[in-house]
């Protein structure tokens, strides 16, 4: 629903989130204060009560945010590791098929190079838009077809072919994991709880009885930091989306080597 935020530059995404929270808080202060004045103004100890409840709430909410932030980071790190492993398997496969007799070696290497280029140029931009790329699979199928066409003639070639097939399966596994990670992210229900928690957090600060400017300023600071925290989680969530996402660096360095040989 809110995936469009990943199309914004990071600074705009961060600013938008932070400012939205501050504005929400300010609007709340402006609308809530008159009612508060009517019902609870000058209730002795109001701020203390709100303060105690807010402290308890912040413990639970802080834990939730912290755990979610860690999960988002771990997810991003795992996906990055998957990408690196896929590129490493691809590199090893490229080396392996280089040992085949000609013209098989050259043909197989062309096909792997084609896959790598496609991944960088076409698959990655699609992943950034949250779309699982499918055309890379066609390149994989073309390579697989060519690999299976090769019939080893010597024991050495048999060993090499077996190793290539093993590495190819390894590569396929990591590729599949990368594709699955394109749509991975924090479940909507969890975002719902985060949003409710943020709202309650701000609403509690609305209940404090203090001077208007101080209310705006101090609560605004809290809202800004809350917005920044949620921006951080959102930016790390969906590991392939937005500017804070996994780059195709591993494939780019491999491709640079492939075309420069």
């Amino acid at each position: 629903m809110f995936y469009w935020v990943y199309d914004l530059p990071t600074w705009q995404f961060g600013l938008l989130t932070t400012v939205s929270f501050v504005l929400l808080y300010w609007v709340g202060v402006i609308f809530v204060r008159p009612f508060l004045r009517l019902f609870v103004r000058s209730t002795p100890g109001l701020n203390d009560v709100v303060g105690y409840i807010l402290s308890c709430f912040c413990v639970f909410y802080g834990l939730l945010l912290g755990l979610i932030a860690v999960t988002a980071y771990q997810n991003s790190a795992q996906t990055e590791a998957t990408v690196t492993r896929e590129a490493a398997a691809l590199s090893a496969l490229y080396e392996d098929v280089g040992g085949y007799p000609q013209p098989h070696a050259q043909n197989l290497r062309w096909l792997l190079r084609d896959y790598t280029r496609h991944t960088i140029r076409y698959a990655w931009p699609l992943q950034r838009r949250g779309i699982t790329p499918v055309e890379g699979g066609i390149r994989v199928a073309a390579f697989e077809e060519a690999l299976h066409r090769f019939e080893p003639q010597t024991p050495g070639q048999q060993v090499l072919h077996a190793e290539s097939l093993r590495m190819f399966n390894n590569f396929l596994e990591h590729r599949r994991m990368r594709l699955l990670a394109v749509t991975t992210g924090i479940p909507p229900v969890m975002w719902f709880v985060v949003a409710i928690g943020a709202f309650i957090n701000l609403a509690m600060v609305w209940l404090f009885d203090m001077r208007f400017t101080a209310h705006l300023f101090l609560g605004g600071l809290l809202a800004a930091y809350l917005g920044a925290m949620i921006f951080l989680i959102a930016a790390m969530d969906n590991p392939f989306r937005g500017e804070v996402s996994i780059p195709p660096t591993a494939f780019e360095s491999l491709f640079a080597k492939m075309v420069d040989e």
Partner: peptide, 11 residues
């Protein structure tokens, strides 16, 4: 600030 962000970044 807010709406320029939306305008520039939204696909």
């Amino acid at each position: 600030l807010l709406f320029s962000g939306c305008g520039l970044g939204l696909p």
